[in-house]
């Protein structure tokens, strides 16, 4: 009896936490379907704000910028990050722990510091601000996440597998092609999805290093908010949110969930 009471209290508490986390997002989503221009009053259901978005030339331009920058920085950071993870995983060298720590550090550094330091770097080297600087900045902060994700996958892999391939007449290249790469692939894809999400989402760092003609979606949303919150922003934010959530879910599904330990139990 007592146990029952406890579990229902725990359930209520969990619900409260979930509400705390998701209520703001839920309200935003709801109001993106609100017929009224004023956020506070619900007057009816509509898709018109979404349709308006599609006809807004500046929104479409920002979307194109965001997608292009995300695609390029994801591509580059995934390749560089995967190679770094393979090297870190394979070789033992002096100060390995220090180098590992340095790779993880960009995740912990406040974004505003990162943005500022990149801005200083670009202006010192007189690189004109624009899409190129945005891409370089995005690669910088995506890289660490890719390395961590791919590394986690490689850590879960038995070292014996590559040795077994080598013992079965596979050259080092064939071992990579048929064993290491296919086994690391879910980690690589997950890393790429995280990189893409981070790039699409980023505001703070982009704010510092963006130039003319390189407005991304988050920067555009911010500019719109300055002119007052319209249902159109709600609609745009909702689109952004669901795109991000779906990417994160895909990445989560592909993440290694202690596959090796599960196998050992069986």
């Amino acid at each position: 009896m007592k146990k029952n009471w406890r579990s229902s209290a725990l359930f209520a508490y969990s619900l409260a936490i979930l509400a705390f986390l998701y209520l703001p997002l839920l309200i935003l989503t709801l109001y993106s379907f609100n017929d009224s221009r004023i956020n506070a009053v619900w007057t009816g259901f509509t898709f018109k704000w979404y349709i308006a978005l599609l006809h807004n030339q500046r929104v479409l331009e920002a979307l194109t910028n965001s997608l292009m920058i995300a695609a390029v920085s994801t591509f580059v950071s995934t390749i560089l990050g995967t190679m770094a993870a393979l090297a870190l995983n394979r070789y033992t060298y002096k100060y390995k722990a220090v180098i590992n720590g340095l790779l993880y550090l960009p995740i912990l550094i406040p974004e505003i510091v990162m943005g500022l330091s990149l801005l200083v770097l670009f202006s010192q080297t007189s690189v004109p601000l624009g899409k190129v600087t945005l891409i370089l900045a995005h690669i910088t902060f995506c890289l660490s996440f890719v390395i961590i994700t791919v590394n986690a996958r490689l850590e879960g892999m038995h070292k014996d597998l590559e040795q077994a391939a080598s013992d079965l007449y596979a050259t080092p290249w064939q071992t990579f092609r048929y064993i290491t790469f296919p086994l690391a692939l879910p980690g690589i894809v997950a890393g790429a999805l995280i990189a893409f999400t981070l790039s699409i989402d980023d505001f703070v760092i982009s704010f510092f290093v963006a130039g003319p003609n390189s407005t991304t979606l988050p920067l555009y949303v911010y500019a719109m908010v300055k002119r007052g919150i319209s249902p159109e922003i709600n609609a745009l934010s909702t689109v952004l949110m669901f795109a991000t959530i779906s990417l994160i879910i895909i990445a989560q599904v592909l993440q290694p969930q202690h596959t090796s330990s599960k196998k050992e139990k069986e």
């Binding site: 038995h158 014996d160 597998l161 040795q163 077994a164 391939a165 080598s166 013992d167 079965l168 007449y169 596979a170 050259t171 064993i179 296919p182 086994l183 596959t259 196998k263």
Partner: peptide, 20 residues
């Protein structure tokens, strides 16, 4: 000789079967 150039094969302690 590298392992892949030797005409011997090994059965590993944890089998090292390719999971994919």
């Amino acid at each position: 000789f590298a392992p892949y150039k030797r005409d011997v094969n090994m059965v590993f302690q944890n089998y090292a079967l390719f999971p994919h």
